[in-house]
Simulated scan of single mutants.
Amino acid sequence: MNSELSGIAGSTPQREALPPSMVERITLIMDLFERPMLRLTLEQIAGQTGLPRSTAHRIIDQLVGVGWLEHMTTGYRLGHRALGLGGREVSHSALRAAAAPTLHRLALRTGLVVHLAVLDETEVYYLDKVGGRSAVDVPSRVGGRAPAHCTALGKAMLAWLTPERLDQDYGSGLASRTKRSIVGRVQLHEELGRIRGRHGLAYERGECFTGIGCIGIALRGPAGPVGALSLVGEIQDPLERFAPLALGAARSVMDELGSESWRLGIDMTPARVGAAQRTPVELASASGA
């Protein structure tokens, strides 16, 4: 009897042996994130993997630092690098589908070419282009890229990144596309400040393509820009008159995205973006955790 009581009162459940390698421990953690929008707390991760809380926290911090996970007030979720391994294409398809009706309405109402794009580091990546016959006169293409700081689309998204992120991304300088392109970081910061002062409206006249002007607006969640749309005309067009339509279109797309946010991986709190560019395996080999 005494031995039974002492066994109940004094013993603790035996924890299964922990995976011996860092790669296996990282795999245990990453395997928990089955969906782009799934959020898990540190306690949930430690409990479900069987890792000590301190070990789990140390590994997670490093995964956050290199962008494989993101930390938010409600827990952790897959980061931009993990989503880029396959989830990014799903997100792009969902974003394009959600925005398509608004893009077509905007093109019909204005007679202008309309773009949809996302930010990929220092470039914009074009997801869609609508505009009938006039679209052939605009030298952009779906699947194409352009320097973000030279386009209204890109500047509209860059305006909502932190100054530290911008300085990091543009530490090696800004490439010039035309004689009108922004070429200095101070000039870029000043331009992005003006964009924020215009409720996010960005203008570009001949900075990316000679003779072409654009008005752009970011599609923003609380975590930052998830994309942007722009109206494209000739450089002398009074693009300011399209500002209410651009703002309204952005609101319409974001309303549509509300029911699709889990597919898009849109975070609802500020994200922490890592600067290092290492894979989980490289992280494991460099870590003593």
Rank of each mutant, 00 (worst) to 15 (best):
G193E: 08
E24N: 10
A250G: 15
G84F: 05
V118M: 02
R180W: 04
A250K: 02
D237Y: 06
H199V: 05
L5T: 12
L95P: 06
V113G: 05
S93Y: 03
G288C: 08
F33G: 03
L38G: 02
E234C: 13
H57Y: 13
A9M: 09
R198M: 02
T27I: 03
S91M: 10
L83P: 02
R194I: 03
R35V: 11
G265Q: 07
A146D: 10
S93C: 04
R39T: 12
V232D: 00
L83H: 08
R177S: 10
L119G: 01
Y125F: 14
Y76K: 15
P147N: 07
S259L: 12
Y126C: 08
G200F: 09
M254F: 00
A100H: 01
R263V: 14
P238Q: 11
L231I: 11
A98R: 00
V142E: 15
V142I: 15
E24I: 07
R105N: 08
A243L: 05
R58V: 04
L42A: 08
L264A: 08
V113Q: 03
R272Q: 14
A98P: 00
G111W: 09
G131S: 04
L78E: 01
H104N: 09
G216T: 08
H92L: 10
L161V: 12
R109F: 10
L192N: 02
G227H: 08
A9F: 15
T41L: 11
A271C: 01
R109G: 10
V183F: 05
R194S: 13
I195C: 07
R278V: 15
L51Y: 01
T74H: 02
S21K: 03
V114S: 03
S3V: 13
A159C: 06
